[in-house]
Amino acid sequence: MSSDMQPLAPSQSVGPEYRPATQKPTATVSTPLPHENVHTLPQTPQLIALLTMIRDKNTGRADFIFYSNRIIRLLVEEGLNHLPVVGQTITTPVGRTYSGVKFEGKICGVSIMRAGEAMEQGLRDCCRSVRIGKILIQRDEETSKPKLFYHKLPEDIADRWCLLLDPMLATGGSALMAVEVLKSRGVPEDHILFLNLIASPEGAKSFAEQFPKVRVVTAFVDVGLDSKNYIIPGLGDFGDRFYTM
């Protein structure tokens, strides 16, 4: 382990409530954050086990894809819960009334290339004919700052709720720039949901400070960044592991 390890990872016993703490296995869980706009998935043993699989360097590509897709679906399900609904009362097949809800508002996905594109399948699994825009942001070799290279977004994006997709949030440079792009196209800040697999506390903090109305939905907040701005412990390069490794 590197010597610049900072704060200690929070560890707790995880498992169903009915099981006494002594019978629950202990694992590292998500770092708690004070920001109100960051929503972390419930730290269930199942989620921890899925994350363990995708972090493990011995997990092959097929398994990596499958298990990350499973987490992504949970992220999408959680993210969609932040969308508005309107009441709708219906008569059930057995003739009872049910006061339910109807999904309200149009949505679209926006993936930050290329790792974000890996999350499109999970989004489509939950929203069949969803429109998906793309944004390519690369680090500028001269200034070493993120630079917008390409974007293609739905025409009417200003009227849509945007699910911004990027699995890893380190410093947040490109994700923050992507939010700027969306805002410049007329999307209100509070109509943007950032769906993310693993975040660093630093990245989450930047989001909270710069765009307090953008909701960040993440599966796990790691302990921090190393001197080269890689997430600790993270899972390596998501795009490489998903597409090419």
Binding site: M1, A9, T26, I48, T52
Partner: peptide, 16 residues
Amino acid sequence: VSTPAPHNYPYMGLHK
């Protein structure tokens, strides 16, 4: 488990 090279960070998780 340990994350891929070059970092090989450890993570204390759960296995099925």
